[in-house]
Design a binder for these strands. Structure first.
Lengths: 216, 216
DNA sequence: TAGATTGTTAATCGATTAACAATC
DNA sequence: TAGATTGTTAATCGATTAACAATC
């Protein structure tokens, strides 16, 4: 066991292990090996053991890892023993697609509100989630105890909204825009940018990197 | 200049530089420094220079990088001189949110078809994109020259659909599901998993890593 | 006991950062 | 010329891989 700072890549892999462990647990499987975890999540057995060993010793030599115990350990490590309260900013196509998303709730993230600037969209409720006017963002975030925001607006207002979210007390932002936001210290940010990923695919395809094809 | 294999992180940053350069170009700015590119995309000036130097020398010492020339270089490097033909598999909430997405077309990715298993959703057209029956996936991909697929279906059918997409000749898949897909060699894969990112935020928040707060 | 598999250390690899001569 | 900023090399840092003794 080790107390270095845990890397992003490690945390990302832990999510993958957790997802598979939940599945195994539902299937009633008692034990799993680092090899199986690795194969199923796209990494190596050594990497799995290394990742887990940064937090403690959870396996049994010769046998493997107990499924439910390891699942619970990962749930604790990732901070998922509690339900997080999430809002979606922007109730356009993408934003409203995320409302009432069952799987998110099951995995610990409950979307409790959406915010929208267009008065035509404000007021109704999408799959049980109220769509509120963005002017009331600060008040509602406070009243509803929102901790994490999903930013699904056009690029233009993204930066300013990130500031407002930070000031309103949100501690994490998942940024779906292509704009770099800077909500300041104390607010964690993750980016999901479709264009970046598609451009990455484009690069890989044209260079033939994954195809084993000849170079340029 | 260098001919090592370019890392994922580098390619991701190139996307960021390109996005900002397009903006500067639209604004008529002639030159930009590595420092400004770095500040605007969340990296360091040294990193920007290092990234670009892997492909050649595009700047002028003492002056900076010519905006439009560098933009065009990045467009070429990333394989964006052509328009990519993209399909969306799964016309549910998320899938249909991606149809007719203007910004994607502007950045080189044209969604030309969607595939859906639910007969109730098949047949209509969403913002100009035809929603086709998934049984015709192979034929339509071939006929329409689709090269990249965005996989926006539930976890259960993801793996099998990835196989079919690969067999149908797709060379890149953007996987929005939480399932590990394995379309085989010759097909590039990128993952966008909301749950993974939210769990990453959760981890960062509970450990206080970005807040500079005290440890656990 | 024999076989399996962990936890951990050491070796390797790659990416980032720092520094600075070159030069606009 | 003086100031700015690149391109590149060397130094540092961190992550991944390999190997294996411990032990179930």
């Amino acid at each position: 066991m080790n107390t270095r700072r845990i890397s992003d890549s490690t945390v990302r892999r832990l999510s993958g292990y957790l997802r598979y462990l939940r599945q195994l647990s539902a299937d009633g499987r008692p034990v799993v090996s680092s090899r199986e975890l690795a194969d199923e999540t796209g990494t190596t057995a050594a990497q799995v053991r290394k990742d887990l060993s940064q937090f403690g010793s959870f396996g049994q030599r010769g046998r493997g890892y107990p499924v439910t115990a390891l699942r619970d350990v990962l749930i604790r490590i990732l901070g998922l023993r509690r339900q997080w309260r999430v809002c979606v900013v922007g109730a356009g196509r993408l934003g409203s697609a995320l409302l009432g998303y069952e799987d998110l709730a099951r995995r610990g993230f409950e979307v409790v509100a959406a915010f929208e600037i267009d008065p035509a969209k404000v007021g109704r409720s999408v799959r049980g989630v109220p769509v509120l006017p963005v002017e009331e963002l600060e008040r509602e975030i406070d009243m509803r105890g929102v901790e994490i925001a999903i930013l699904a607006v056009p690029d233009a207002p993204a930066r300013q909204l990130a500031q407002r979210l930070a000031a309103a007390g949100v501690t994490g932002i998942l940024n779906f825009t292509s704009t770099k936001i800077d909500p300041g210290p104390g607010v964690a940010v993750r980016v999901m940018d479709i264009a970046v990923e598609l451009e990455g695919l484009s690069y890989t395809i044209v260079t033939g990197a994954s195809a084993g094809g000849a170079g340029p």
